[in-house]
């Protein structure tokens, strides 16, 4: 733990190698990905904060158990997201709580992402998004079928590239592109129903 400064400059792959030799080094991988994965869990599920923490713990334990499986041809972040995604799906099968609610997008820091999403996903210039509109966008997103919502979240909220989403969901990049296009068009329809015409 004393060598923390040097850990911070290390690549994920180097930390993986170190974690295999020294359990304590895994802490720095957790530290690096914990906020992202926790946010992803909250965005994609409607489980309570306590359950999110538990799920986060299960995800990192699974990551640790499978460290030897990590394929260097992938980005480590994509691999962690993949494990998180699979674990969330498993929880969904157990608890049927995969679908997001409006509240799951209620974190204030998501508003910036929402503005970005509106701009990119709907091809409009929207530098400013009002709180009222933000809530409507969240509601519209929450109404999307899971397969569309998850690709939009990964693309516009988690800022993952098509290739990375392909690696996370284990789907061809072309299929991911098709899913994103369909998701955008579905979102437009739902947005209209939520009186977001002024944004579209």
């Amino acid at each position: 733990m004393d060598k923390k400064p040097s850990y911070e400059t290390m690549s994920d792959e180097q930390l993986v190698q170190l974690s295999l030799k020294d359990q304590n080094s895994f802490y720095y991988l957790i530290e690096r990905y914990e906020p992202k994965i926790l946010r992803y869990i909250k965005r994609i599920t409607n489980i309570s904060p306590e359950e999110s923490e538990d799920l986060l713990q299960e995800i990192f334990i699974k990551v640790y158990r499978n460290l030897n499986r990590f394929n260097r041809k992938l980005k480590f972040s994509s691999w962690v997201y993949r494990i998180a995604h699979n674990e969330i799906i498993n929880q969904y099968r157990k608890k049927k709580s995969y679908s997001a609610t409006i509240d799951s997008f209620a974190e204030n820091d998501d508003t910036d992402y929402l503005a970005g999403f509106i701009g990119e996903a709907l091809d409009i210039d929207n530098d400013y998004i009002s709180r009222e509109n933000a809530e409507k966008v969240r509601a519209a997103l929450a109404k999307l079928p899971d397969k569309y919502r998850e690709v939009l979240i990964l693309r516009y909220f988690e800022d993952q590239s098509y290739r990375e989403i392909s690696d996370i969901l284990r789907k061809p990049a072309g299929t991911v592109a098709t899913l994103i296009n369909r998701a955008k068009s579905k979102f437009r329809k739902i947005a209209k129903q939520h009186q977001l015409e002024n944004l579209i």
Partner: peptide
Amino acid sequence: MTDTGQKILQKIKEDNVRPYPKSR
């Protein structure tokens, strides 16, 4: 150290979790 990070590492140690071998 973050609380969550510490907790997860602690859990790994308590449960004696080990990475699965490469051979698997």
